[in-house]
């Protein structure tokens, strides 16, 4: 049975002017740059209401490290009360959006994704022994890898959102 090593999600909240296109491109580029080539978007919601548009986008991607370990990254973007605005920056007019942005980044490493240790109690016991004794240190490395990618992506998101304000 595959074992998931889950990393706690990192959250970014922002209120103000931002560039939706730049934000989505930055997230995609970061993931692709990290070797997560196939970024899927299983859900996209866009609802226009009285206060502006509410948008919810989910992105999912995975990457094989080897025949035993697979990394998963999930990004959930929620934008509420979004309106198109024109912002003057250095004397230049820019089309941007204004609203509340919440970006949640989570991830996990999945061990034994090909289910080699499935079938009987002996294999299950071997699986536990393998994880707890033989590759224990490496399991921590897998956790660190995902954790550092989550934090890096969070920084990219903050820089992209923040740069719209700071220039």
């Amino acid at each position: 049975m595959p074992t998931d090593i889950t990393v706690a999600p990192a959250m970014t909240r922002f209120y103000g002017p931002f560039n939706q296109r730049a934000l989505l491109d930055a997230i995609r580029s970061f993931l692709q740059g990290e070797g997560f080539d196939d970024v899927q978007e299983p859900s996209y919601k866009h609802k226009v209401g009285g206060e502006g548009a509410d948008i919810e986008i989910k992105m999912e991607t995975d990457r094989k490290l080897n025949d035993y370990v697979k990394y998963f990254m999930n990004v959930e973007i929620r934008i509420s009360d979004m309106k198109d605005v024109e912002v003057v920056h250095n004397g230049e007019k820019r089309k941007m959006q204004h609203g509340r942005v919440q970006v949640s980044v989570s991830g996990k490493a999945q061990l034994d994704y090909q289910k080699h240790f499935e079938g009987n109690k002996f294999l299950k016991a071997l699986h536990d022994f393998y994880h707890k004794s033989i590759i224990k240190m490496r399991v921590e490395e897998y956790y660190d890898y995902i954790h550092s990618r989550i934090l890096r992506l969070q920084r990219v998101v903050r820089e992209t959102l923040g740069s719209e304000v700071n220039g």
Binding site: P42, S43, Y44, H46, V48
Partner: peptide, 10 residues
Amino acid sequence: DAKFTIVYKD
């Protein structure tokens, strides 16, 4: 093998 959902209100 592949799926998506789009919700659009407008």
